[in-house]
């Protein structure tokens, strides 16, 4: 009986690892690009830095078909309800990446128009600081996200 339990435990954890492995290499991004960081995002996604190496090459422009929300650029108060709606439309499991300081903290904007970090509205998994972040920095953030996806409990 004890052996059986440990055996099922073994298979469950292997299944968890397998699902995590599959998920971390099939990232479908939704790029929510609002500002200048979009240029750096494009540089990272294009062939020179090649985000596709990490299985994140297929960008979907429908939240229904994507599972990682890349928030790229300053979010204004006027834009905030739209971002929230897009986030709510993505099916579980989903992750959020804050790309650039404006999305992380509001950056150098401290005024009536700007949201002081998107984590005041939606939960964020990975923060990529920089104004804008270097492509190496973005890829590092993407690898951090992959580690996180691999480690977490996989809800099926």
């Amino acid at each position: 009986m004890k052996m059986l339990e440990s055996a099922t435990g073994f298979f469950t954890s292997r299944l968890q690892d397998a699902i995590g492995w599959a998920r971390k290499y099939s990232i479908f991004q939704y790029p929510f690009v609002t500002a200048c960081c979009g240029m750096e995002y494009m540089a990272t996604a294009a062939s020179h830095y090649d985000m596709d190496r990490f299985g994140a090459g297929l960008v979907r422009f429908s939240p229904r078909q994507s599972d990682v929300l890349f928030v790229v650029g300053t979010i204004s108060q006027k834009m905030a309800p739209i971002l929230k709606k897009i986030y709510d439309q993505i099916c579980e499991p989903k992750w959020v990446v804050a790309f650039g300081v404006c999305t992380c903290t509001g950056g150098f904007y401290d005024n009536y128009a700007t949201v002081m970090g998107i984590d005041t509205i939606i939960p964020v998994d990975v923060y990529i600081p920089g104004c804008p972040p270097r492509p190496e920095n973005v890829l590092d953030g993407l690898m951090k996200l992959q580690e996180k996806i691999q480690r977490q409990k996989q809800e099926v």
Binding site: Q77, K78, A80, P81, N111, Y112, A113, V115, T120, I121
Partner: peptide
């Protein structure tokens, strides 16, 4: 530029510099 719910006019010098009017309330 601003949303219809916004109160006041932000570039007036007597608009309080720290006044925020978020549409989505912080979690």
């Amino acid at each position: 530029l601003m949303y219809e719910e916004f109160q006041g006019h932000p570039l007036r010098k007597d608009y309080p510099v720290n006044r925020r009017q978020p549409l989505v309330k912080p979690v």
